[in-house]
Design a protein around this nucleic acid. Structure first.
Lengths: 148, 148
DNA sequence: ATATATCATACCGAATTAATATGTTTTATT
DNA sequence: AATAAAACATATTAATTCGGTATGATATAT
């Protein structure tokens, strides 16, 4: 299933914020954009969506930056993608211009809403904390020696 | 979640074929397109995809048309949408241009593949037969009197 | 032969997506 | 007060996808 570039960048950026969650201090867009290898100006657009979704706090001005609005356990992949991929998360358009409404109803009930629920459930089940733990697990034990 | 027009038309058209399944005789694109209120030439493109997916049999020439390639119980919504919505069904592109592959791995495992599996499962669980039964159930008992 | 159908490409305009450009506002630091 | 560093806002561009047409070729029952 297709995830847009913004959606993927948003997920990755949120993991970076989560890694920084305990420091208490904000982290800048430009530092994240450098880690991710994308332009600062493009990532700004992603953060605008995350902010609108209430997932991050921002501080303007020098020494400013972004922080998670709540703990990594309390932020799901669904929260993030729902803030960014509006077309993915909006309920399926059912109109099929069919003369029989019974057919449209059946498609809506059995296929489209079922699909919407399934996607929402799957994405709600994974949190930023889960992603952090998975990343940690990949870096240990043998691989730890390859890092500083 | 967004379903393309072709995907919705494909589902509806397959239900029309399913309604005709027991007759043994093929049904034409133009008769379906009239029932659905869309152009014949556009629906032809949808049928080309369904054919490529092995879901329908076609007979060319006069008295030709289309039939289901197998019974309604044996055709799922997944079969249909997978034949049509390639962008929806193809595995998520994971590349996020991040310098840390651990992050990409985590996103892939915990989010993208989980999502792909969830979508596939939900759509595989519903068959054309299920749709037919749902349509029948809507037409009975009181509503039956409104039809010929 | 002819009418009726599938089948195959090519094309077009609109919408969406990915990304850049340009500037403004805010704020810590000096 | 001046400056630098940051978020914030909006417009623009380029590329891709999507929805739909157009044109014609091929096959086949009558």
């Amino acid at each position: 299933m297709r995830i847009s570039a913004k959606g993927r960048y948003g997920l990755a950026a949120m993991v970076h914020l989560a890694l920084n969650y305990n420091s208490g201090s904000p982290i800048t867009i430009i530092s994240i954009s450098e880690k991710m290898g994308i332009s600062k100006i493009y990532l700004e657009q992603v953060f605008a969506l995350l902010k609108r979704g209430g997932l991050v706090l921002s501080m303007k001005g020098s020494q400013g930056g972004y922080q998670l609005a709540r703990s990594p356990q309390e932020i799901s992949a669904y929260d993030i993608l729902a803030s960014i991929e509006t077309s993915m998360m909006e309920p399926a358009d059912k109109t099929v211009a069919d003369t029989q409404p019974h057919l449209e109803n059946a498609m809506q009930e059995l296929v489209f809403s079922k699909l919407d629920i399934s996607v929402k459930t799957a994405l709600t089940e994974v949190s930023l904390e889960d992603l952090l733990q998975n990343i940690e697990s990949q870096s240990s034990p043998e691989q730890l020696m390859y890092f500083i």
